[in-house]
């Protein structure tokens, strides 16, 4: 693999990553326990959203079942830990399970396009929720399961800040792996798939198997996030794995900018952190949020990260319009 050349964009991205990492590492100095918890939650939501971005942003398919995969990861870890298995063995089990279920669900759903996957995943999420709620012998139903924080190399992760660092590390590793994936020839086929699926097909890219793998890898990312979510909250019940959390995960990707690497980071921040700062708006917050989503789709469907480009394009268009108007005025005798 060749190293990326140091173009201006790369330098800017690198500077941004360094600044963000420094900010995230310094943040606990200024935050109380709840703030650190929220940032940990943000990191894990971002991991799940990065996975969804593969499905939505690169393979162009709407998936409304990401929270179900989160639940599969979380419950796999919780059930195995309850049976006395170590977290670090439960983690790969949960991730593999999410990946396998992703393949099994994606296979029928991806036979057909767009709305079918959306509804298949929506229904799948409803089914997983029903199983978690009804199968009390396995999942504890609405009573949930208590989950202890794991140990790492003999060091307990009970403190909020220690676990926050673990969540950040999980985010960093996932982001790096996905970045490497997207830079590989395989990932480039992905981008081609997004930009023009029919051309991709005619170039010999097997659209279905690529989309399916994108979907299953996205599901595995959610499995990772879920596996770390259970010990973060110390307790899991069905509520964070229903349809509404899936919709929020989808909106994280959409708001940030589908198909953009940093889109999920921004989107997860807006969906996870903003409601906490806007507590004053109370019940009306989600109404405003819904209207914001509609407005974003109307004016800039590429998400918030596409806004600067959009503004630049609008300026250029205005300038050229003014220029041609001036030119016409000048040409007049």
């Amino acid at each position: 693999m060749t190293l990326p050349t140091l173009s201006r964009a790369n330098v800017a991205a690198l500077a941004f990553i360094v600044a963000m990492t420094a900010g995230l590492l310094a943040a606990p100095l200024f935050l109380k326990t709840y703030g650190v918890y929220l940032l940990s939650l943000w990191a894990l939501n971002t991991v799940a959203a990065i996975g969804l971005n593969l499905t939505l942003g690169y393979a162009g398919q709407i998936s409304l079942g990401q929270a179900a995969f989160l639940g599969i990861g979380a419950y796999a870890v919780a059930i195995l830990m309850k049976a006395g298995v170590s977290f670090w063995l439960g983690l790969p089990a949960g991730v593999l399970l999410a990946f396998a279920v992703g393949l099994a669900l994606g296979f029928p759903a991806l036979r057909v396009q767009h709305h079918y996957l959306a509804f298949a995943t929506l229904g799948f999420n409803a089914l997983v929720f029903l199983v978690i709620r009804n199968e009390e012998w396995l999942t504890g139903g609405n009573f949930g399961i208590r989950v202890a924080r794991p140990e790492l190399l003999g060091h307990s992760l009970r403190s909020g800040i220690d676990y926050y660092h673990v969540c950040l590390a999980v985010l960093a590793v996932t982001a790096l792996l996905v970045w490497l994936l997207l830079r590989s020839p395989w990932g480039r086929a992905f981008a081609c798939l997004r930009d023009n699926p029919i051309r991709a097909e005619s170039l010999g890219i097997d659209v279905r198997s690529y989309t399916l793998l994108a979907f299953a890898i996205g599901a595995a990312c959610a499995g990772v996030a879920g596996a770390f979510l259970a010990p973060l909250v110390n307790f899991i019940d069905p509520s964070p794995f229903g349809l509404v959390p899936s919709i929020y995960l989808l909106l994280m990707v959409i708001i940030g900018g589908p198909g953009r690497f940093f889109g999920p980071f921004l989107g997860a921040a807006i969906v996870t952190l903003l409601p906490e700062w806007l507590r004053v708006a109370d019940v009306w917050y989600l109404v405003i949020f819904g209207i914001f989503v509609v407005a974003l789709m109307a004016f800039c469907p590429g998400g918030l990260l596409a806004v600067p480009e959009k503004v630049a394009a609008m300026r250029a268009a205005r300038r050229s319009a003014r220029g041609s108007a001036a030119g016409q005025a000048g040409a007049r005798p």
């Binding site: 709305h115 959306a118 919709i247 909106l251 019940v283 949020f289 989503v293 509609v294 789709m297 469907p301």
Partner: peptide
């Protein structure tokens, strides 16, 4: 295209549902 429109109706769902709840 299809995708932004579908997402916009999801936004509308959130607004309507929570408006009535509020």
């Amino acid at each position: 295209g299809v995708l932004p429109l579908a997402i916009a109706t999801i936004g509308l769902t959130l607004a309507l549902k929570n408006g009535v709840k509020a």
